[in-house]
Write a protein that binds this DNA or RNA. Structure first.
Length: 563
RNA sequence: UGGGGCGUCGUCAAGUGGUAAGACACAGGACUUUGACUCCUGCAUUCGGAGGUUCGAAUCCUCCCGCCCCAGCCA
């Protein structure tokens, strides 16, 4: 990257470090997920920051799995995470690391701390440790085991590793300061006894290092120069500094930034898991989820996410980014390269009474109105077509200028048609429109120069392919669903009942039959869509709406309804 | 009278003592064979509040107010 100048406070720090010759001007970052769940757009911010920063300063960025808790981790997540990072467009080359690869080294560091009299084996139970820790306003009390000799600690720690003690019976603790105002410094646990099979080390260990002990040293081992993490770890930095300084090892600089929050969704793994397990969504990759797999399935291109992350900035204040900004980034990425197609979601049959029954023709339609290089495709036309039910009103309000009785509109890339008759069933529901077309207007222009107020989309009834189309909206109807929890309620109650609307009887133009999942299209006047991978079948494709088009008419309608 | 952070437009966010960038949103208008795209225009006399320093303060000082995080052998 050739970007000049700092674009955020982290880059400022880095540029200062480079100028000062710190680490010889080297920049090395890392993205350190725990393989216990799927990545979401909040992680994308961190991924873009870490990989982007390395690229900007000609440095490197590692992918490191922080796998220190075997009871929560799974290789399935490792694979999913790798796929997502790759999809987002980043490459960690051969630098795929695992904290579990450092277990032996970490053990030796712990031994060294014990020898220095800076760590001790504690026999207190979890409950006792909590009780001894004190509170936010009161200091803690020292463990009665705090002053064991290094020899005794060494022996006990070795026996912990050897499996001589039951789970949870002892811990290795750092000997720091039980009176510290920073709870993290009150003799934090470094190792716990936990007989669990680790996804990579199997049953080689029955003691596992805690995140706090592991993370800072993993960064150190990898020579990370700038360890970027979220705000909640600011309190942990003094502890990391303590471990690093006591051990006298390479000392990365940790810099904290605010995590991403998006309006109308939730971002915590716990809440996302609840949505999945509670059946409120179809899975981690449900297109309504803020997960990267969900966004991908929905049709969001990775460059849109990268552009979004560039725009939201990096700072330290807690903030909630407007979902509209993400949608904007998606439209911006899709508009120039999504071929246009026609699809009718809620079909209303139109019979063109003066068009011969047995006649058919193919009309050329541009794949992109502004990019001729994208070519065109033929769209079949015949006597019976479908138009969008919304595009007709029997008794139109003032600003509605689509089809209505007696009115003429243009069928995109086809002809002008005029509505002559409205056919209804017994219940009064409109089932068909009978129109006439003007053969002189083929292609969409009238030789006599007359104008129409609207151009509507359509598909040939005889040629169109039946499809299911899924329309997505914000998952929650409130900007901050998590606020429900703060009010003592369940955030599930804030779910938007209309977040998924299925159009089971859609008709799509024939050229769409060969679409592939993930391939973007703009269904003219409706939005950007992509074929769904998992749920499409040969005879019945399913299309997901990635994002709608901006719609002034909808806004107008809403305004008059509410206003 | 625990510790650590943060407060600049509706939402993000620049600004680093010299007189409030930009983006999204919103509101008008132009263009239009997508009510799309694109293009114009408008949108903080004011930076959480009050004092103070200074020729000059969002930037420096003092006090106050508000919000977030921390009491896992989770990460």
């Amino acid at each position: 990257m050739m970007d000049k100048g700092a674009s955020n406070f982290i880059h400022e720090i880095i540029e200062r470090d480079i100028a000062a010759g710190k680490h010889g001007g080297r920049v090395h970052t890392r993205f350190p997920p725990e393989p216990n769940g799927y990545l979401h757009i909040g992680h994308a911010k961190s991924i873009c920051l870490n990989f982007g920063t390395a690229a900007k300063y000609n440095g490197l960025c590692n992918l490191r799995f922080d796998d220190t808790n075997p009871t929560k981790e799974d290789p399935e997540y490792v694979e999913a995470i790798k796929e997502d990072v790759r999809w987002l467009g980043f490459d960690w080359e051969e630098r795929e690391y695992y904290a579990s690869d450092y277990f032996e080294q970490l053990y030796q560091y712990a031994v060294r701390l014990i020898e220095m009299g800076k760590a001790y084996v504690c026999d207190l139970s979890a409950e006792e440790i909590r009780a001894f820790r004190g509170t936010l306003t009161e200091p803690g009390r020292e463990s009665p085991y705090r002053n064991r000799s290094p020899q005794e600690n060494l022996d006990l720690f070795a026996r912990m590793r050897a499996g001589e003690f039951p789970d949870g019976s002892r811990t290795l603790r750092a000997k720091i300061d039980m009176a510290s105002g920073n709870l993290n410094m009150r003799d934090p646990v470094m190792y716990r006894i936990m007989r669990a099979t680790h996804h990579r080390t199997g049953d080689a260990w029955c003691i596992y290092p805690t995140y706090d002990f592991t993370h800072c040293l993993s960064d150190s081992i990898e020579g990370i120069t700038h360890s970027l993490c979220t705000l909640e770890f600011e309190d942990h930095r003094p502890l990391y500094d303590w471990f690093l300084d006591q051990l006298g090892v390479f000392h990365p600089q940790q810099i904290e930034f605010a995590r991403l929050n998006l309006s109308y969704t939730v971002m915590s793994k716990r809440k996302l898991l609840k949505l999945v397990e509670g059946g409120h969504v179809a899975g981690w990759d449900d297109p309504r989820m803020p997960t990267l797999s969900g966004l991908r399935r929905r049709g969001c291109p990775p460059e849109a996410i990268r552009a979004f992350c560039d725009r939201i900035g990096v700072a330290k204040s807690n903030s909630v980014v407007d979902l509209a900004l993400l949608e904007h980034a998606i439209r911006e990425a899709l508009d120039p390269r999504a071929p246009r197609r026609m699809a009718v979601l809620d079909p209303l049959k139109v019979v063109i009474t003066n068009y011969p029954e047995d006649q058919e023709e193919e009309l050329p339609a541009a794949n992109h109105p502004k990019d001729p290089s994208m070519g065109e495709r033929p769209v079949p036309f015949c006597r019976e077509i479908y138009i969008e039910r919304d595009d007709f009103m029997e008794d139109p309000p003032k600003k509605f200028y689509r089809l209505a009785p007696g009115r003429e509109v243009r069928l995109r890339y086809a002809y002008f048609v005029r509505c002559q008759e409205v056919v209804k069933d017994d219940s009064g529901r409109i089932v068909e429109l009978r129109c006439t077309y003007d053969p002189e207007t083929r292609g969409g222009n009238a030789p006599d120069g007359r104008k129409v107020k609207a151009t509507i989309h359509w598909v040939s009834a005889r040629h169109a392919v039946p499809a299911e189309v899924r329309l997505y909206d914000r998952l929650f109807s409130e900007p901050d669903p998590a606020a429900r929890e703060r009010a003592g309620q369940d955030f599930i109650a804030a779910l938007n009942p209309d977040s998924l609307v299925v159009r089971p009887n859609a008709r799509i133009e024939p050229s769409l039959a060969s679409a592939r999942p993930g391939e973007p299209f703009q269904f003219e006047r409706l939005g950007y869509f992509t074929q769904d991978g998992p749920d499409s079948t040969a005879g019945r494709p399913v299309f997901n709406r990635t994002v709608s088009l901006r719609d002034q008419w909808a806004k107008l309608k809403h305004k008059t309804k509410t206003g």
